[in-house]
Design a protein around this nucleic acid. Sequence first.
DNA 1: CAGAGATTGGTATAATATAACAGCACGTCA
DNA 2: TGACGTGCTGTTATATTATACCAATCTCTG
Lengths: 164, 164
Amino acid sequence: MKHAATSEAFPDAAHDHAECISTALAAAEDTCRREGLRLTPIRRRVLELVWQNHRPVGAYDLLDQLSRDGKRAMPPTVYRALEFLQGAGLVHRIATLNAFVGCSHPDHAHQCQFLICSDCRTVVELESENIGRSLKREAAALGFQVREQSVELTGLCPECHPAH
Amino acid sequence: MKHAATSEAFPDAAHDHAECISTALAAAEDTCRREGLRLTPIRRRVLELVWQNHRPVGAYDLLDQLSRDGKRAMPPTVYRALEFLQGAGLVHRIATLNAFVGCSHPDHAHQCQFLICSDCRTVVELESENIGRSLKREAAALGFQVREQSVELTGLCPECHPAH
DNA sequence: CAGAGATTGGTATAATATAACAGCACGTCA
DNA sequence: TGACGTGCTGTTATATTATACCAATCTCTG
């Protein structure tokens, strides 16, 4: 049994992958149309693969998966696609894992924080204004002007920790 | 002219390097003696180099600097030393830079946050209980139990931003 | 259609990190 | 004393992640 609070943030293992992939892709199409960005076939495919994995996935894993489509892909292909997707706010890079995840809130610009389960590797994207503000405030107190934040919390998700 | 608040956190370019290195090394000796850890010559030397740079420094830069001592060092040598130093809380790894900095508060265990100037590459280590608590609280609200935090804020330090 | 700019393909290589095994130093315990 | 265990170092090799660079192609716009 799980709290109501967790059921939204941490996806059920049995949730409908196919649907969340197609939702993400549809959202991406929208975003790109709105912003005048080109979601080309490769970029779309990479985004699809990122969501298919539904956990942080390395560039070279994506590369392997891309290559299974038929034609062998090279590293720059996937890195370029990822760079575009990050720029468009459709994908985030997890620095502590050298890996990428689909953005859960692609519809608007935001600074976010990640909860990374070290057991099942699930990642949840938090979007706490509160944390963002605290960080900026503490930095500003030292005269530091924040441009980017990378906040990655590693630990155990509700499904994986002993209390469960 | 600079605020009082910044003078402690962000080291003056003209501050006495030699002293801050020797202070750090003395603190490291203490810590290791207290914890029963062995600060061997290599480990001590790597720590010294980290402090000499006094900004985040890559493992391969350290390797080059080590090699200038006479005998050519190999990657595992420096990575092992860094691993030890991290374990001992004497050095932190900056995930967004794949680089290492000396820990400013090696005398006690702590979770910390980094302010990274994208212009001059200076890094300041914040140790905000406040932020640590907020992060844990927000995570706990989703049933997530935090074990490690990586908080890295990139932006402009007081010396480098336009307002200065 | 011509030209500019964006996108892709491909080669090569850079930069970061670890696996695996051999040898040595040092303490300890029979 | 000496045999063993443990931890540290040396060394080779390789894995993993990421980018520089140039050529070819596509797409949009005027």
